[in-house]
Nucleic acid binder design. Structure first.
Lengths: 195, 195
DNA sequence: CTGTAAGCGGAGCAATATACTCCGTTTCAT
DNA sequence: ATGAAACGGAGTATATTGCTCCGCTTACAG
């Protein structure tokens, strides 16, 4: 045990491997958002412009692709949540911005994946997401932007509803535009006005 | 060609056949609402407590079950829309009632089915649904309940969004309760208050 | 009560879709 | 230039689903 044997995960990926991994993730996200369900492996590989062998090398078993997709999206959402918290002038504005960002960053896939995955997966990330949301709500409350009867569950469920793809054959831009419009109206209707 | 040969469709179904048909429809609706997608034939038959042969006798080809489900739900929705129009004291109230009824009567399956079916199917019913919606909006506008920039498309898309199953493993009652809460907030946030 | 046609169930086969492996070829990094 | 890493995709195994067929059961008219 002289020099710690570097676990294989540590070795940096070759450039093409990193690129393909990213492509697979993006393809999977796009497909899930489009069809509102789990896409077949072959479809993901084709969409990514990559061989199936490549998909299996990066994501060997049934769940690992979905897991990776969920982590990717959650991380992005948490990051944006932090930014919203840091940069917004009011709690209401931060919360509103967070939810609109969630629509844009594809949080919808997490909902879809969530249904397919064991809840015991990635407890840490879920905790991180939960934590950001809690802080957002807390601040919005302290600023008087939302009532106390608006719970974290309400917001989480709203995120699920408004981020979920309509799966009606709309193109992604239109889909997002609609989600933003509807979300805005919903937020306007929540007890007490959001900044 | 003496006495007009009665087309087979005309002969009234035997009592058990009618019961089973109804069961199949209900099972299909429940399954679609639960999993947010097309259920397998076998699953529908099992849920209905009926043999697969029976399913195929009633709905011989790929689309006929889905079509029947959609017609069933649309008819119910149109009916309720008419009632809302007839019984409500204001246009805003009628529109609000219509949307909440849509959540209850499983309009969500139409969204799901819609994506799987050819749009050229059942043009008549679609027209009927469209017509009720148009009248509801027209009346709500005349009553000053909604602005002119709230279009029929907005309302239709809202119906799609709020009726769509969350497919998160909630039981149906909870699912509906959430949809009602969210819909209410959304409606409150629409330009100009609904009666 | 009885006969019979309408209806039922579900085993089982065919078709399709999906998961996953394997290995010769290509690309990257040094 | 060369070895290690990664790639592609044909091909096979497996699961899923769609659908048929026919012997049995049930409704209901007479």
């Amino acid at each position: 045990m002289q020099h710690a044997t570097p676990s294989p995960a540590e070795r940096p990926l070759r450039a093409d491997a990193r690129r393909n991994r990213r492509r697979l993730l993006d393809a999977a996200i796009a497909l899930i958002l489009e069809l509102g369900g789990e896409p077949s492996r072959d479809a993901v590989a084709e969409r990514a412009g990559v061989g199936i062998g490549t998909l299996y090398r990066h994501f060997p078993d049934r769940h690992s692709l979905l897991r990776a997709v969920a982590l990717d999206v959650i991380d992005r959402t948490v990051e944006r949540g932090e930014a919203a918290l840091a940069e917004s002038t009011s709690g209401g504005e931060a919360l509103r911005r967070y939810l609109h960002d969630a629509v844009d960053s594809g949080l919808g896939v997490v909902n879809v994946v969530h249904a397919l995955l064991d809840r015991t997966d990635w407890p840490d990330r879920r905790a991180a997401a939960q934590h950001v949301l809690d802080r957002l709500i807390d601040r919005a409350r302290r600023d008087g932007a939302i009532d106390h009867d608006v719970t974290a569950t309400d917001i989480a469920l709203a995120a699920i509803r408004f981020c979920r793809p309509l799966a009606i054959g709309l193109d992604p831009a239109e889909e997002r535009a609609i989600a933003h419009r509807q979300l805005a109206a919903y937020l306007d209707g929540l007890p007490v006005r959001l900044g």
